[in-house]
Design a protein around this nucleic acid. Structure first.
Lengths: 157, 157
DNA sequence: GGCCAACGTTGGTTCAACCAACGTAACAGA
DNA sequence: TCTGTTACGTTGGTTGAACCAACGTTGGCC
């Protein structure tokens, strides 16, 4: 098992303990811990990048790698590497776009769609576990506030 | 400048967009971006680990590296490396504990205290920038919810 | 026909967070 | 007192996510 050490135990230094950046890093750590647990339990040796690419691909239909990179905010060099892994596992296919031979047209296979569906369920379960400390109403509130912090758009006063 | 690319622009795939894990990773990305910006602007080539160690050290007074590692949740091997850098910059001192020669007693120098104070101000400013999208009341609410998510303690129903 | 931009690829880097193994030192039990 | 076990600091790795630079190929535009 790769359950994260969860070194929750002892209190952090006072200078650090209550800062948003610190709480955020701990929450993120917990989140990635749950995710990698989930990905591992799901088998298939996939990680976040794989899921994001499969999700984008399902939504867009066949597209170029560059476009996939833009819609997932994954660097195109990483897209290359991760797609190669997905192709090895027959979850996607890549063919040169006949209309523009610079482009690789990426499309999902039937197996890829199956894997995406499977991962979907796993990841949904993880959201529930992550947010379990909050009531349903608190979860909604939290997500709304978190979204604004993530977006970082400061409204004019 | 190392201002993060902030590739906020285009929307993530629908499967991903509204998940807590995704929002958390984006908020965390923004947070670390602001932090590294701040550390860079502060000069001195220090990063999060350095600050955490200095903060813990100031709070505890002279202690062993192992103890420092426990109170900051930093692996002891990383503590070793980062303390060596802090010592190079004369921000901390290390001496063998005469009462237990396995231990390195770490203490802060005057310069270290000064650096900590300086970084404190920088980091406080970053909290403000990070939470700027929220009103003061929302910030309090957000921090409370975030703390519970970070702690991950699921209360009995 | 030339020039520039886009694309995919290779091969790096960084930071935080880990783990394993080792020698030295202290300690606890027989 | 010896003996086994733990604690400590150190060295030297690995991982995942996010990056950047440079290159050859291809396409579009003037």
């Amino acid at each position: 098992m790769t359950t994260p050490p969860s070194h929750a135990g002892l209190p952090a230094p006072a200078r650090v303990r209550d800062r948003a950046t610190w709480l955020l890093s701990r929450a993120y750590l917990r989140s990635t811990g749950l995710l990698s647990e989930g990905f591992e339990a799901a088998g298939g040796d996939l990680r976040g990048y794989h899921y994001r690419l499969l999700a984008a691909l399902e939504e867009s239909g066949p597209v170029s790698q560059a476009s996939l990179g833009r819609s997932t905010s994954i660097d195109r060099s990483d897209v290359t590497a991760v797609l190669a892994e997905l192709e090895d596992r027959r979850l996607v296919e890549r063919t040169v776009d006949p209309d523009d031979r610079r482009r690789n047209l990426v499309s999902m296979t039937r197996a890829g769609m199956g894997e995406l569906t499977r991962l979907d369920r796993v990841i949904s379960g993880i959201q529930d576990r992550l947010l379990a400390p909050l009531s349903a109403a608190e979860q909604r509130r939290f997500l709304e506030l978190l979204r604004r912090v993530a977006d970082g758009v400061t409204p004019p006063p």
